[in-house]
Design a protein around this nucleic acid. Sequence first.
DNA 1: AGCACAAGTGATAATCATTCTCACTATGGA
DNA 2: TCCATAGTGAGAATGATTATCACTTGTGCT
Lengths: 133, 133
Amino acid sequence: MTAPRRVIASAVDRLGRAFTIDDLVAEVRALAPSVGIATVYRAVAAMEAAHAVERVGTRDESALYVRCTADGHHHHLVCTGCGLVAHATCPLDDVPPLHGTEGFVVTAHELTLYGLCAGCATEVSPASELPRS
Amino acid sequence: MTAPRRVIASAVDRLGRAFTIDDLVAEVRALAPSVGIATVYRAVAAMEAAHAVERVGTRDESALYVRCTADGHHHHLVCTGCGLVAHATCPLDDVPPLHGTEGFVVTAHELTLYGLCAGCATEVSPASELPRS
DNA sequence: AGCACAAGTGATAATCATTCTCACTATGGA
DNA sequence: TCCATAGTGAGAATGATTATCACTTGTGCT
Ligand SMILES: [Zn+2]
Ligand SMILES: [Zn+2]
Ligand SMILES: [Zn+2]
Ligand SMILES: [Zn+2]
């Protein structure tokens, strides 16, 4: 592939954590200042289509992505303390949602778990959580 | 409350189904053409804060809302055929997600179920589903 | 190597949902 | 009734994302 896409892919690796497009642009431009924002958008869209990254939500009105580490159906644990995103297996596989589904045929679902990662859980006081949903 | 808010509240009732701000503006203006878009945004925000409506997702880059019918913790069934949104009880209450949660303390979750409502399930061929996630 | 075509790039403008500003008005209590 | 306050409406402002377009790069073929 082209040089900008290589730089963008390695920037995603270097970031490790979840990132917005702006995070990624900053990381990319540390090495290649000439790369345009539109190119980063296009590269992330291509990586998403190729399952190299996945969108995990929104932060400050901007899309959040993480590097794809797990294959197949899974969900995400989002730390409300530091923003870390971890992968989790699906807890619904053997739990059909029976109540309230009058005639509804469920074919897909989205699940995101919020909480505190190991680091944040010990670090902060229990009162400083940011509840959600 | 004021006249515009009364009109907006009754328009939400009249719609019944899930709606975007534009849907609601159209319904509102059928009776009160002078109501401004910003007023509808503000009224929906107030109703959301008062738990009179809840946001259930996104349709065509616009926020989707439904009238609040269930109290407390619950989730939503979204028909990918007609857009109908129904309420569902939480299937996770007795299923702690154990796998892959190294030290993570889960405090909240978001879950949305996609599928076909009773009407759409019988009406359309099985091939025309719109899968998600 | 030389060439041709397709894909990618970068700057900029356009889009579009949502929010802000501000002058004006309706509301509801004293 | 009178006033303080919250709500209103029009339009401008914001900000993320996308489209446009002329230019460059990568690729395969000869
Ligand atoms: Zn954390
Ligand atoms: Zn799942
Ligand atoms: Zn349906
Ligand atoms: Zn739940």
